[in-house]
């Protein structure tokens, strides 16, 4: 294998490990967002329960908090758009290179 390919594979394995290891080392934790941890810190500093003065527009429109499943739907849509664009163009580049190498 080329040296570059090996580097790439090692990096991918490393990336997966970084993402997965906390799940096993921090058993039983909730893995809530660090954004929420930030708002808890605000309450701790000010000493009062700090109330946001503006609600997210979408939550106002549907009159409540966004359901968890729907939230993950939107996150997936976001990921999907991104991956789609990257994969589409990358595919074109790869094919172009193959074509050029042949010529």
């Amino acid at each position: 294998m080329k040296k570059k390919t090996i580097t790439a594979i090692v990096l991918i394995i490393l990336a997966v490990l970084i993402a997965l290891v906390p799940l096993f080392t921090q058993k039983g934790s909730e893995f809530g967002g660090s954004d929420d941890a930030g708002s808890e810190m605000i309450s701790e500093i000010t000493g009062t329960e700090s109330e946001p003065w503006f609600d997210p527009v979408f939550e106002t429109a549907i009159g409540g908090e966004l359901p968890g499943e729907i939230e993950s739907l939107f996150f997936c849509v976001q990921t999907g758009i991104g991956v789609g664009i990257i994969a589409f163009f990358m595919g074109r580049f790869v094919e172009r290179k193959k074509h050029e190498d042949k010529a």
Binding site: L23, G32, S34, A37, G82, V83
Partner: peptide, 24 residues
């Protein structure tokens, strides 16, 4: 440019667990 934009889209949508027990 669109790939760079898409890269931001993907990475900022992935909530990854971290060693502190919360996600970011």
């Amino acid at each position: 440019l669109s790939m760079a934009g898409a890269f931001v889209f993907v990475l900022s949508s992935l909530k990854i667990p971290s060693v502190t027990g919360s996600c970011s």
